[in-house]
Design a protein around this nucleic acid. Structure first.
Lengths: 135, 135
DNA sequence: ATGAAATGTTAGGTTATTTGACATATAAAT
DNA sequence: ATTTATATGTCAAATAACCTAACATTTCAT
């Protein structure tokens, strides 16, 4: 079992994730409904979150604080998880606006940098996993 | 928050611990009843296990495989967790037999070494935490 | 004002966990 | 060869935790 396996192992109930992230169950479920996370389920359909999921939730929280909406967050997070292209299976999804994905991402990243200048200390990517998982 | 805090943070439900340790709920509760572990509880009285707890369960499983009983396991595990004596509060508990604690521990450790010679590969102490927690 | 986005709140149903009792298998002691 | 102790299985009733869905509230941009 490698590090990525460990990070994606479904371990935490929603109650624990609430404490780890200080998000409400309502928020967590809402983000799932908007495809920002996709936690596993038990046989009985209850959510089970991995380190990666919790990490992602912390990032989502951070980006929300900076004023992003679901669509923006999704774009950014999907972007980051695409940084490691193995075979690069080409299949771009269409954005609602008449901007190209690239244009949109550029705008978003600029805005984020702005926010970073005076916003609260940003929780960098992978915070929780770094906290718990050996590298 | 330091490493020991992370290791002792109550995170896992009994269902997850069953999968992580391949013990049944009955076994886990039995070991608790025999004071081999002492997981935290939620407000609603449900068990919440830490990395340390899971680690300990893996050790218990290993020692059971080697033929130890609850009393022997308790002695050994308490021993190991006493290796870091801060102020050494003297308060020895009496064993049922007419052997001193030291004698008993000596016997147990010898038997363990014997078992180690041909038994299955032993899960060393701290296995799970080492697996997940950064040092 | 209107509308959309994010979150709160409540209700009814399902799943997971708890304790306790009794059963079973095996090993140890008599 | 019985008896006794140990470890675990199984079942039941009670409760905690979680699920979805609906409706309410807040905030912010039009």
């Amino acid at each position: 079992m490698n590090d990525q396996d460990r990070r994606s192992m479904p371990l935490f109930s929603i109650g624990i994730v609430m404490k780890l992230t200080e998000l409400t169950a309502r928020q967590i479920r809402y983000y799932e409904a908007n495809d920002l996370i996709a936690p596993e389920r038990t046989k009985g359909n209850q959510r089970l979150f991995s380190f990666n999921d919790v990490d992602r939730l912390l990032q989502i929280k951070d980006l929300l604080d900076k004023g992003l909406n679901m669509a923006g967050i999704k774009l950014l997070l999907d972007e980051e998880n695409k940084e490691t292209p193995e075979e690069a299976p080409k299949k771009e999804k269409k954005t609602p606006a008449n901007l190209t994905d690239k244009e949109l991402r550029g705008i978003l990243k600029n805005e984020l940098n702005e926010a970073g200048r005076y916003g609260k200390a940003s929780m960098r990517q992978g915070e929780l996993a770094r906290f718990f998982i050996k590298h």
